[in-house]
Structure formats: C-alpha cells, structure tokens
Amino acid sequence: MVLSVVLAAFVLILPVELPDKTLFATLVLATRFPPLPVFVGVGTAFGFQVAIAVTAGSLLALLPGALVSAVVAVLFLTGAVLLWREARKGAQDEEAAAQARENTSFFRAAAISFGVLFAAEWGDLSQLATAGLAARYAEPVSVFVGSWAALLVISGLAAFLGRKLADRLPVALLHRIAAGLFLVFAVVAVIETVRELVG
C-alpha cells in the first residue's frame, strides 16, 4: 500500500462527496432509522461501490458518457419523485416514522440503507474519480483504502448528524429539501447528456 496514493484518493473524494446526493440521502435515512445501522449499511454500500470502481478502473472510461449521464438523470428524477411523495404524507407520518424507527430491526435498517446508497452511487462523480485514480496509479488497494475512508467520513457525519437534524427540523421539510436537490442533480445530468450527444 502506498500512503501517498491513499492520501491523494482521500483528498480527492472527500470534497466531491460533501455536497453530493448521497450525503443528503444518508441524512434522510438517518431521520427514519437509528444512526448506527444507517452508517453500517451506507458504509458497506460505499465499500462495494469503491471495490467495483477500482476493479472496473479504466473500463468505465470506455462507456459512452451520454449513456451514463442519462441513466443518472433518470435515477435522480426517480429519487426526487419518491422523496417528494414521502414529504407530502405530512406531519401525521412523522409520528408513524418515529414508531417505525423504534420497531425496525438493526439488520432491516442497515439493509434498506445499503440498498438506497448502492443504487444511488452508480455513475457518481466519486465512483468515476475512484476508477480514474485506480487506472492512473495502478495501486488498487491504496485507491480503495483512501476512497472508502473519505466516504466513511462523509457517511458517518451524515448518519449521526442526520438524527440531530431530524430533532430540530420536520422530516417532511428534509424530504422536500432532498427532493429539490435530487431534482437539481437530475437537471445537471440531463444537461450533461445533451452536451455529450451534441459535442
């Protein structure tokens, strides 16, 4: 393992993920479930995604950019619609969500968190950046460790901060904010798709 490559991956991936949709998805998950299973599920999903990105390496660069960005746009739009529907359920569901949070097993909450993040990370900037780093440095283990460490820092902050945020803000408001952000990311992905097709 090469420490300079670990550090390079960590420093590159950390700021890419800070304003990312996965941060907000983790925050929303943390409003529904206890933070520890959310962190375990999200962290495991990130681990799998980093392993896939590192393994794929330069192969991801061979995929047409328009196809990747179009699929990402559809995923973001779907996420925005689902989050908005969740927010429309309103305050009556906040009490039910609190009860569901208490009644959901650790494994189920971790599995749901894993599924949400595993699906959301496909074609993500951090995944593409990780693949690029793996191809550039030819140090897959170092790139894996650095990238995964950065993603664990982000998911830990989101999982444990999300619960505190939920105590101060209504869950419906968090869902609306996340839906708006997902919509913005969908629009950006559509613009990228058009640029790829035109350019």
Results as ranks from 00 to 15, higher is better:
72 V>L: 11
42 V>K: 09
62 L>P: 00
44 T>D: 00
53 A>G: 15
68 V>N: 05
84 W>M: 12
56 A>V: 07
62 L>Q: 15
100 A>Q: 08
54 V>L: 01
57 G>L: 09
53 A>M: 08
50 V>N: 09
91 A>H: 12
69 S>T: 14
77 L>C: 12
82 L>S: 11
72 V>P: 00
64 P>F: 08
99 Q>F: 08
55 T>L: 15
91 A>F: 06
47 G>Y: 06
73 A>F: 05
78 T>Y: 12
84 W>N: 06
91 A>K: 09
94 E>G: 04
98 A>F: 07
68 V>M: 06
92 Q>A: 15
99 Q>T: 10
61 A>R: 10
64 P>S: 08
85 R>K: 09
49 Q>N: 15
50 V>G: 04
61 A>G: 14
44 T>S: 08
95 E>P: 03
47 G>D: 02
76 F>K: 00
80 A>M: 00
65 G>S: 13
66 A>L: 03
81 V>L: 02
69 S>H: 09
68 V>Y: 02
44 T>P: 00
52 I>K: 09
87 A>W: 00
94 E>P: 01
80 A>P: 02
61 A>S: 13
61 A>M: 13
94 E>I: 04
66 A>R: 07
53 A>I: 11
44 T>M: 05
87 A>P: 02
47 G>V: 05
65 G>P: 01
100 A>H: 05
97 A>T: 09
81 V>H: 02
52 I>C: 05
76 F>T: 03
101 R>M: 04
84 W>Q: 11
77 L>E: 04
93 D>R: 12
76 F>Y: 15
90 G>D: 05
59 L>W: 13
48 F>P: 04
57 G>N: 09
66 A>N: 10
99 Q>W: 04
67 L>D: 07
96 A>E: 11
84 W>R: 12
85 R>P: 04
72 V>M: 08
87 A>C: 01
63 L>Y: 12
78 T>M: 13
91 A>R: 13
87 A>K: 00
51 A>F: 06
46 F>P: 02
47 G>R: 03
43 G>N: 14
88 R>G: 13
97 A>Q: 08
51 A>C: 04
48 F>Y: 02
60 L>Y: 09
98 A>C: 04
49 Q>H: 14
77 L>M: 10
84 W>E: 11
77 L>G: 12
56 A>S: 12
66 A>Q: 10
77 L>S: 07
43 G>L: 08
71 V>L: 15
100 A>R: 15
90 G>E: 05
79 G>K: 01
64 P>H: 13
85 R>A: 01
88 R>Y: 07
81 V>A: 08
92 Q>S: 15
89 K>R: 15
86 E>N: 09
82 L>Q: 14
94 E>L: 03
53 A>T: 12
98 A>P: 01
77 L>D: 01
93 D>N: 11
87 A>N: 00
47 G>E: 01
92 Q>H: 14
74 V>S: 01
64 P>R: 09
52 I>E: 04
69 S>P: 03
66 A>S: 13
54 V>M: 02
